[in-house]
Design a protein around this nucleic acid. Structure first.
Length: 462
RNA sequence: GUCCCCAUAGUCUAGAGGCCUAGGACAACUCCCUUUCACGGAGUAGACACGGGUUCGAAUCCCGUUGGGGACACCA
């Protein structure tokens, strides 16, 4: 009987969920989906100073927006401190951990000395054999000096560290709050995590954790360290790299499926395929197809992916999406029947790159009448447009406003005048939108309807 | 500085020793389509970091160099 895979996404609420974290969550989620496993969420709020509930909210909302549903109740490490302390006490009892009374100032001095000597800093073991019992002191694990600790990373293969490179690190702070490396081991064990998929920046923590798993008699999970996502300057993603939160991409008008498609191709591939449906991702995702090299974030590629997804999603889905996340900016649609709005979406969606552009175009279809600023036109262009509109107005008045009839009548007019359709189309477009960019003219006019179009043409022809 | 990881075009990637005169995609440029903007179509330019091995044969394996990234806290 094959055991069920259990993975977790374990962000710390000390900042917004950036794009790298979002991809880590995505890969964990996809792995669970692809293998019929469970995807858990654990909030690593052991840094009581810097953790903030607004960050937790941001993380949860980001995951919800992306559709990465977690399978069990989220676990907060801060609710489990008693358990962590219990394990620390047990470790002390077994002589595998000890109290340390070195002050930060003393350690800083050692650190400075090491730096001066160009040697790596390691806790010198000052208190290792002091048998201190004072409450309120730090507790360290006793790490063996001899031997090596190695593991086989699913993505990278065997990785080995010399134990002598690892020092006796702190597991419980002076205030008796557990540190990250300590809490992870206990919580991953208690949650029966089978695979740990996390950023490459955790490779160095892994031997510390493995040593602890063994000291505690816990079985060690499998590890897969994902390549990082770097900023345009190829440095680790941080605040200065544009968007701080994944949610900002929602604000920019990207669909969640667009961000997912973009992120999944950073470090993972399935032949030459660039665009995937969710169903395809769930079917195709394989952990051994993840590559090792870091990837640079590209807004250009994301934008392209976003445009692709706008074409693939149905008008009905876009209607619902826009009303869910951009309710305020699409309030003007409420007076129209859903069918009509969806028809409008259909003629726009293939040409816009994101939801913001979609809304802008919807506004030109269904929003308030445009302002006709002749000054926005090229010099000398205005009079011709006004003239054309005056001549075209009676023609439009006779149309049944089907797409075909509108096109036939306007083409006939252009031919009769011995001119190309272009200036005629641009004149009407200007009248109807106040600008020079819009969906296809005839389908747009059909969607807008006779009354509105004639009103706008009259207004522009004044 | 020490340790760890990585290395195909500006960017994301395909490539598991001969299928590679290195394939796809984004971006760039050219042309076509066209009622605008997009889309779409056709093309152009652009890469196996370097040096040694191993092998009949290396983008693919090994070593070194260089380059990049990450970690070195009572942060995660």
């Amino acid at each position: 009987m094959q055991q069920t895979n259990r993975v977790r996404f374990a962000p710390s609420p000390t900042g917004f969920l950036h794009i790298g974290g979002a991809r880590t969550a995505l890969f964990n989620w996809l792995f669970a989906q692809a293998t019929g496993g469970k995807f858990l969420l654990r909030i690593e709020d052991t840094d009581t100073e810097r953790s903030e509930s607004r960050f937790t909210e941001d993380i949860l909302e980001s995951l919800r927006w992306l559709g990465l549903k977690w399978d069990e109740e989220p676990v907060y490490q801060s609710h489990r401190f008693d358990r962590h302390r219990e394990v620390a006490a047990d470790l002390m009892k077994k002589g595998l951990a000890y109290r340390c009374e070195c002050t930060p100032a003393q350690l800083d001095a050692v650190r400075a000395q090491c730096q001066a000597d160009k040697k790596p800093f390691r806790y010198p073991g000052t208190c290792r054999n002091k048998q201190l019992t004072a409450e309120g002191t730090v507790i360290r694990v006793h790490v063996p000096n001899e031997g090596e600790t190695s593991f086989t990373d699913i993505i990278r293969g065997p990785i080995t560290f010399k134990n002598s490179e690892i020092d006796d690190w702190v597991i419980l702070r002076g205030n008796q709050v557990p540190t990250y490396n300590f809490a992870v081991v206990i919580d991953d064990h208690d949650l029966k995590i089978t695979h740990v998929l996390r950023g490459e920046d955790h490779i160095n923590n892994t031997p510390k954790q493995i040593l602890l798993y063994k000291q505690l008699g816990f079985s060690v999970p499998r590890f897969a360290h994902l390549p990082m996502i770097l900023g345009q300057d190829k440095a680790k993603l941080s605040k200065r790299h544009g968007a701080a939160s994944t949610l900002e991409y929602r604000g920019m008008g990207f669909l969640p499926i667009a961000l997912i498609n973009f992120l999944v191709r950073l470090g993972w591939s399935h032949g030459d395929q660039e665009i995937f449906t969710m169903a395809e991702l769930k079917a195709f995702f394989a952990i051994d197809r993840i590559n090792k090299a870091n990837a640079v974030f590209s807004l250009d590629k994301l934008t392209w992916t976003g445009g692709k997804m706008m074409e693939i999603v149905t008008a009905a889905e876009l209607f619902d999406y826009v009303n869910q996340y951009f309710a305020d900016s699409v309030a003007f649609l409420n007076e129209y029947p859903r069918d009509q709005v969806e028809e409008g979406i259909r003629i726009i969606q293939a040409k816009v790159k994101n939801v913001l552009d979609l809304i802008e175009q919807l506004n030109c279809l269904f929003g308030a009448d445009p302002v006709h600023d002749l000054g926005s036109l090229k010099p000398g262009e205005g009079p011709g447009i006004v003239q054309t509109l005056r001549e075209v107005e009676p023609i439009l008045a006779q149309s049944d406003f089907s797409k075909a009839d509108l096109e036939a009548k306007l083409r006939e007019y252009a031919t009769g005048k011995g001119i190309k359709l272009t200036p005629v189309a641009q004149a009407v477009r200007f009248a109807v939108t106040g600008g020079k960019v819009s969906p296809g003219l005839f389908e747009m006019l059909a969607v807008q309807g006779k009354e509105r179009v004639l009103r706008r043409v009259k207004a522009a022809a004044k």
